[in-house]
């Protein structure tokens, strides 16, 4: 597959709406979503459960038709040119969905053959991943550990050398070490020229992406590079700590000058309504002004949109 030139758009989503009708109740999963993804970049879709991430992925991978709007992936219209498109994309669903009664090797070879290619032909692309699971290649996929399953799934999604790779919550339920490894792997794939779209409920992973979109209740709240997103935050934010954290939280929630307060590691983070407002804090508490991280920005965005 030819490499796309760097300023080409890998994905163009324009005013996409999708709703599900469940009995008489209509649930809007995606509401007038528009965004673009630059070819060769690592694009993160961050949002809580039920935000519409999977629906969006299913539309992008041509599994689901949008109610309104148009979607172009790799220059192809997902509604009409899906047959060509399916040759070019790799999709790893959030739920492990390979054949549990086939071995690692059989799964990879089966998916390779479905795309009219072979394991050997694209071995160099998955080599780094494959050598990690190679010792178990004759083991059935159902008997693998979670991390192994995930590596296998990524192998299967890559075996036909897609130009765009879709990963739906690949790190959900994976331990911290494996997560780190996984993201390193994504950086390598990006270096190969593959555009990667990844969704995650973990906000800390946002900084690892070239560009992130925050999605909530079917709407995109913000879309930018992680750096710009942090810089765009102009509220005053403090970290506070005291021996009795629960009582402190309750106390701060009542304070009229506080916009919102939430536990963050061993601290509580406080976002002020006004930049210069002052609050009364208990004697034992220690408060310090901090620079926000990406999670603070997202929490703020989500809270202000929810209300």
């Amino acid at each position: 597959m030819a490499k796309l030139n760097s300023n080409a758009k890998a994905i163009i989503v324009d005013k996409v709406t999708k709703s599900y009708v469940n009995g008489k109740k209509k649930t809007t999963a995606l509401d007038q979503i528009s965004f673009e993804v630059t070819a060769g970049s690592l694009f993160g879709l961050i949002g809580p459960d039920g935000a519409g991430k999977t629906s969006l992925f299913r539309i992008l991978t041509s599994l689901l038709l949008p109610d309104e709007g148009s979607v172009f992936v790799d220059g192809l219209n997902v509604q009409t040119e899906y047959k060509t498109l399916r040759q070019r994309i790799g999709y790893m669903p959030g739920k492990f969905s390979l054949y549990t009664d086939l071995t690692i090797q059989e799964n990879i070879e089966f998916f390779a053959s479905l795309f009219g290619t072979t394991f050997e032909e694209n071995y160099d692309l998955i080599k780094d991943l494959y050598i990690q699971i190679a010792p178990f290649k004759d083991r059935r996929a159902g008997k693998l550990s979670g991390g192994m399953k995930q590596k296998l799934a990524l192998c299967c999604a890559l075996i036909h050398r897609p130009t765009i790779l879709f990963l739906d919550e690949p790190t959900t339920g994976v331990d911290a070490v494996s997560r780190k490894e996984f993201w390193e792997m994504l950086q390598l794939l990006k270096a190969e020229g593959i555009t990667i779209i990844v969704s995650t409920p973990y906000m800390d992973e946002a900084t690892l992406c070239d560009q992130v979109a925050l999605i909530q209740e079917g709407k995109i709240l913000g879309i930018d590079t992680p750096q710009h997103i942090i810089e765009g935050f102009d509220k005053a934010i403090y970290a506070i700590k005291s021996p009795n954290m629960l009582q402190l939280l309750k106390h701060l929630e009542k304070d009229p000058a506080v916009e919102h307060v939430y536990p963050f590691g061993e601290f509580h983070h406080i976002v002020m309504k006004q930049k210069d407002s002052v609050i009364r804090i208990p004697e034992a508490a220690v408060m310090e002004k901090i620079t926000p991280n990406i999670e603070d920005v997202f929490i703020d965005l989500m809270r202000s949109h929810a209300s």
Binding site: L63, S97, Y99, C156
Partner: peptide, 13 residues
């Protein structure tokens, strides 16, 4: 049920 159909559906088969 296994979800494998998703993976099959995105292939050009």
């Amino acid at each position: 049920e296994m979800g494998t159909i998703e993976q099959i559906n995105v292939t050009p088969i």
